[in-house]
Design a protein around this nucleic acid. Structure first.
Length: 259
DNA sequence: CTATCCGACGGGATTACCTCA
DNA sequence: CCTGAGGTAATCCCGTCGGAT
């Protein structure tokens, strides 16, 4: 006999059978669920949950104990094992000094399906129910898996970015050192009295290699007509300028000024 | 015994929808 | 009929717990 998620054998308190797996809703607003005495009728039901039942059930105030008692027969063993993981049962067992529950481990196919779905979309709102049915899990379990998956994915991403920033920082440190050395050299040259141009190595002005490529065939116009190639003339440094179609820079003082 | 992984939970925030005065 | 306030449901993120490996 096949059961789907909407086929339910419920043993619970009549009138307040919550079908929502989302514990969030129960804890929302910090509301304890209180049922009137005449609502607390033990019941055993087998049938399909109608949309209305679902709707009204979720609207009803519910208690965790009630939730636990309303376990669906359609659940897989894994789902059942994880039901027993829930707080209510745990507390119940602890109260009774019962044995500790097993922790659910997703099977490989379940994991693979969830991974595939996650790769397509890291959120799952529309397909939660369907996915849960397909995997024989409770929607809540699928939801939790996605939440954890997002969290771990984010953590991993943060680690990668951190590593990247570290490397970037090291590079900048090196660059900073090199530039400081360069400044020192230039200062000492200036102090020695000779005109700077006489001391610069021969190929002082170099055509920016990337411009050489880019501007080949282009008109290379200096858009703002200021003789510099940076448009508004507010470049942070005048280490380079355009001449005709070429971007020229001082390869000695600004070896990294090409674009 | 310890470290790590990962499923689960609790709490807070946000958004959308509904009801009612 | 329109509107704002309040309630509720759904979903998300974050931090944490605790069983399994």
């Amino acid at each position: 006999m096949e059961f789907d998620d909407s086929t339910c054998l419920g043993l619970g308190i009549q009138g307040a059978l919550p079908q929502s797996d989302d514990h969030d809703h129960q804890k929302k607003n910090g509301k304890k669920l209180i049922l009137k005495d005449d609502q607390l009728l033990p019941s055993l039901t087998l049938g399909r949950r109608s949309e209305n039942t679902l709707k009204s059930a979720t609207k009803e105030k519910e208690s965790t104990d009630v939730l636990q008692q309303a376990s669906c027969m359609s659940m897989s063993m894994s789902a059942l094992s994880s039901i027993s993981n829930s707080k209510g049962i745990r507390d119940h067992h602890e109260d009774e000094g019962g044995s500790p529950r097993k922790k659910l481990r997703l099977t490989k196919p379940q994991f693979a399906t969830l991974e595939d779905t996650f790769k397509e979309h890291s959120t799952l709102s529309p397909q939660k129910q369907g996915l849960a049915e397909k995997l024989n899990l409770r929607p809540r379990q699928v939801e939790v898996w996605f939440q954890n998956r997002r969290a771990r994915s984010k953590l991993k991403q943060t680690e990668v970015e951190c590593e990247l920033l570290k490397r970037c920082c090291e590079k900048l440190k090196d660059e900073n050192k090199r530039l400081q050395r360069e400044v020192q050299e230039l200062k000492s040259m200036k102090l020695s009295g000779a005109p700077l141009y006489m001391k610069l190595p021969a190929p002082t002005l170099t055509v920016c290699p990337s411009c050489d490529e880019k501007l080949d065939g282009g008109d290379g116009r200096d858009v703002d007509g200021d003789g510099y190639g940076d448009g508004d003339g507010s470049s942070t440094s005048r280490s380079s300028f355009t001449f005709g179609s070429k971007h020229l820079y001082n390869s000695f003082t600004h070896p990294s000024a090409f674009c």
